[in-house]
Nucleic acid binder design. Structure first.
Length: 572
RNA sequence: GCAGAUGUGGCCAAACUGGAUAAGGCAUCUGGCUACGAACCAGAAGAUUCCAGGUUCGAAUCCUGGCAUCUGCACCA
């Protein structure tokens, strides 16, 4: 949308000579202050070329340039050449396109390339901690953004369902003499597993030999011991039950749950390949791939007891994904603490001769910090009494919202499920609104206040737009619109923002940064709230025109919310 | 020690990737509901963008050198 306007300006300016169209396009900017127009051409680089003052150049250009169709005026200000679009024209163009394309407005054509996104990827046997929301929501949103940008997306939950921690669980389970018959195993719950972990660390503190016992148990599992395998399956099922419940609540989906165990049978082939390519080196009874020439520490492939590590399994996973999906890009949405690990894995693949290793991208993000007693932000522990389990935080947010709903809208149907959706959007938005490398400073009270720049604020804007549509009782058509009714500042501000949707999708995708769309959703919500507040729709002579703008805004906001992985609510 | 991330009003932070007077939110102060949904809107006040140099017509943004905070650095994942 914006493009065609920029093209028109570029063509007009290029027609005067001096600059080519592409040079103009490169210079052209969108002023942040709307009073400076819709597009702006800084003339400073021209100063040297023409040996004239930028101010004079802008003034000169202003008199010479032929105003492209749809533009109202061009004004030179302090070395900038500012172009103003005709408001009614812009409105007509943009709303027309939104009406034909619907929620697909601003999306890109399919490009026939595949992107694999690995996100959430929690450990089996442990409850989802609140910090797991980061990889889960960033990945969920990125998968939607990549799709909107034209890629085919493969969403993978790379479960941590293999490794020494299962040795610990099995060891503790047997030590406590818990029942191992199928019926009892089927009733296992995630809480029980958490309990086992806790008691393991307690006991292991006094009896360090328990660690060896756990390692031995994992080795037996790795060697296919049927009994150990049965326990492992039971642990996994108990965890998946709870994961599924949470993912459903959060609207998070995956195409594949290929955990680490899935790659276990492929490990020998990987080891053999490393061996045959002479990359495996023994060091202190462990086998590693040396990466000294890249200034990286060695990549640890096999422990002294012969069992493998997660780097080994990541190698197998990457090879498998390439074979299976022929990806153009493969994203790992994992916290930045693991940057080194991914560098090592990617470097190892490069050493194995796979030139596609440069299509593997680690998407790092910052920590979730909590306020401690001294008022400092720190990792882990929440302030007195607050749980840090995801399900507890979700529940607390939901309770708070239900209270608000009972106050403000006691007659609301499905109050419970609406509350869940608002709670999810509040937490998701809190997580996505800032650049992903920033640490999320989670203050329980602030996060649950739901005023200002929050998920509920945006949902509320969407609800108000829907509500006006509902009360109107009909759908406005473009043919009924008098475009001159939509040239006031608030309408103009709104449409100006809607125009930029495709640009925002592009930026969010190219930077792997959902925050760009989160900020954008805020911009839309702000402008929508303002428009609604200042421009009465129903019962005015501008009713049909304004309703049309309301409908279009709702469509855009609905899709942007979905791109964030948030369910757009119609009543709250 | 080495590597990476971060540093912007009292607090949280944005900035089209080098453009105009550095957004927005919280907290503070002022005003607006017999409501197209006030989970909102309007207004006030609050900034040496960590420091020092450099590049540029122009720097929060790029370069050099510091400082601070956080994270990671071979048998957990």
């Amino acid at each position: 949308m914006t493009n065609s306007f920029e093209q028109a300006i570029a063509a007009s300016v290029a027609a005067l000579g001096t600059l080519t169209e592409s040079e103009v396009l490169a210079l052209l900017a969108i002023p942040q202050d709307p009073s400076h127009g819709d597009f702006s051409l800084p003339c400073f680089t021209l100063a040297k070329l023409l040996r004239k003052a930028p101010k004079a150049i802008a003034e000169n250009l202003a008199t010479q340039v032929v105003l492209p169709p749809g533009f109202a005026k061009v004004v030179p200000v302090n070395g900038y050449l500012n172009f103003y679009i005709d408001r009614a024209f812009l409105m007509q163009q943009v709303l027309g396109e939104i009406t034909t394309k619907g929620t697909q407005f601003g999306h890109y054509p399919r490009r026939g390339e595949r992107v694999v996104i690995d996100y959430s990827s929690p450990n089996i046997g442990k409850e989802l901690a609140f910090h797991h929301i980061r990889s889960t929501m960033i990945g969920s949103s990125l998968s939607r953004i990549y799709h909107a940008f034209g890629y085919d997306v493969v969403r993978i939950n790379h479960l941590g369902d293999w490794g020494t921690q299962f040795g610990k669980l099995i060891t503790m389970y047997l030590r406590e003499g818990l029942p191992t018959d199928p019926a009892s195993l089927a009733t296992l719950e995630i809480k029980d597993l958490n309990q086992l972990y806790a008691s393991f660390s307690k006991v292991a503190k006094e009896n360090p030999e328990l660690e060896d016992e756990a390692r031995a148990a994992f080795t037996r599992l790795e060697n296919g011991d049927p009994f150990h395998r049965t326990l492992w399956t039971a642990f996994k099922n108990a965890t998946l039950k709870e994961l599924d419940r949470l993912y459903t609540q959060m609207g998070v989906v995956f195409d594949h749950y290929t955990g680490e165990s899935f790659f276990e049978p492929q490990i020998p082939a990987v080891l053999a390949e490393l061996e045959s390519k002479k990359l495996l080196v023994s060091s202190q009874e462990r086998e590693v791939v040396l990466l000294d020439d890249l200034d990286l520490p060695p990549c640890l492939i096999r422990k002294s007891d012969g069992s493998t590590l997660y780097a080994t399994r990541d190698l197998a996973a990457a090879l498998h994904r390439m074979r299976e999906y022929q990806f153009a890009k493969c994203l790992y949405v994992v916290d930045q603490g693991q940057a080194l690990h991914f560098k090592q894995v990617f470097a190892t693949l490069a050493k194995m001769g796979y030139d596609w290793s440069n299509r593997l991208v680690h998407i790092p993000f910052g920590l979730i910090l909590h306020l401690n007693e001294e008022g400092k932000w720190e990792k882990g522990k929440t302030r007195s009494g607050h749980s840090s389990l995801l399900r507890d935080v979700l529940e607390a947010a939901k309770e708070k919202i239900i209270t608000t709903i009972r106050e403000k809208n006691p007659d609301l149907e499905n109050a419970d499920s609406v509350a869940t959706q608002i709670a999810v959007s509040a937490l998701a938005f809190n997580d996505l609104k800032n650049r992903r490398l920033m640490d999320v400073k989670f203050d329980w009270d602030a996060a649950l206040s739901f005023e200002g720049a929050t998920g509920p604020y945006i949902q509320n804007a969407h609800v108000r737009l829907c509500s006006i549509g509902r009360k109107a009782g009909y759908v406005a058509e473009a043919s009924q619109v008098d475009w001159s009714f939509l040239t006031d500042d608030h309408s103009y501000e709104l449409v100006r923002i809607l125009t930029r949707k495709s640009e925002k999708i592009r930026q969010a995708c190219e930077n792997d940064e959902p925050a760009i769309l989160a900020q954008y959703s805020l911009e839309i919500a702000e402008a929508a709230h303002r428009f609604i507040h200042h421009n009465r729709v129903l019962g005015t002579e501008q009713e049909r025109s304004r309703l049309f703008l309301v409908q279009c805004t709702q469509i855009v906001l609905e899709d942007v919310l979905q791109l964030l992985g948030v369910f757009p609510i119609r009543a709250m």
